[in-house]
Amino acid sequence: MYDLGDKVEMKKPHACQTNRWEIIRMGADIKIKCEKCGHIVMLPRREFEKKMKKILEKKEKE
Rank of each mutant, 00 (worst) to 15 (best):
G5H: 11
K7A: 11
K7E: 10
V8S: 14
E9I: 12
M10Y: 13
M10E: 08
K12G: 05
P13I: 02
H14C: 08
H14L: 12
A15F: 13
A15V: 10
C16N: 07
Q17M: 14
Q17W: 05
T18C: 11
T18H: 04
R20S: 02
R20L: 14
W21E: 03
E22N: 00
E22W: 00
I23G: 02
I23T: 02
I23F: 02
I23L: 05
R25N: 14
M26A: 08
M26T: 15
G27T: 08
A28M: 09
I30L: 01
I30C: 02
K31P: 05
K31V: 12
K31L: 11
I32M: 10
I32C: 07
K33A: 10
E35D: 13
E35A: 15
K36W: 07
K36H: 14
C37A: 12
C37H: 12
H39M: 07
I40L: 02
I40E: 14
V41G: 00
V41C: 00
M42A: 09
L43H: 06
L43E: 11
L43A: 03
P44S: 05
R45T: 09
E47D: 09
F48Q: 08
F48T: 05
F48V: 00
E49R: 15
E49M: 12
E49L: 15
K50L: 04
K50A: 03
M52C: 10
M52F: 10
K53W: 05
K53I: 00
K53L: 14
K53Q: 07
K54N: 03
K54L: 11
I55A: 03
I55T: 13
K58N: 04
K59T: 06
K59S: 08
K59G: 04
E60T: 09
E60S: 14
E60N: 12
